[in-house]
Computed example of a mutant assay.
Amino acid sequence: MSTDDTARPAFLLVHGAWHGSWCWEPLTSVLHADGWETRTVDLPSAGRKAGVQDDARVVLEELARIDGPVVVVAHSYGGVPVTQAVAEASSVAHIVYLAAYQLELGESVLGRHGAPVPPDPDGFRPVPDQPVPLFYADAPEADAEAAAARLVPQSTRSFTDTVTAAGWHTVPSTYIVCEQDRALSPRFQEDIATRAGAVHRLADSHSPFLSMPGRFAALLTKIVQESAR
Rank of each mutant, 00 (worst) to 15 (best):
R201E: 10
H19M: 08
A196T: 06
D129T: 06
H113D: 05
I95Q: 03
P26M: 08
T38G: 05
V163A: 10
E179C: 08
Q189R: 12
S227I: 00
Y101K: 05
L31S: 08
S158Q: 02
S207W: 00
H19V: 03
P128W: 12
L202I: 12
Q154V: 03
E226C: 00
A203E: 15
T170H: 14
A198I: 01
Q102W: 00
D54E: 13
D5H: 03
D4Y: 03
A139G: 02
T156L: 13
L110N: 14
L98A: 10
V58F: 06
A50E: 12
D67L: 01
T40C: 12
E141S: 13
G79M: 00
W22L: 05
V171Y: 07
A165T: 02
L151G: 12
A165R: 15
A93T: 13
Q180M: 06
A203M: 12
S211Q: 10
R157T: 02
Y175A: 11
P69D: 12
L202T: 10
D204H: 01
G47M: 14
L98E: 14
V30Y: 08
V52P: 00
L110G: 03
L31W: 06
V82W: 01
G123I: 11
H169F: 01
E37G: 01
R229H: 13
F159T: 06
L103C: 03
L31E: 03
G111K: 08
T174L: 07
S185A: 14
H19Y: 09
Q189H: 07
Q130S: 14
L220D: 06
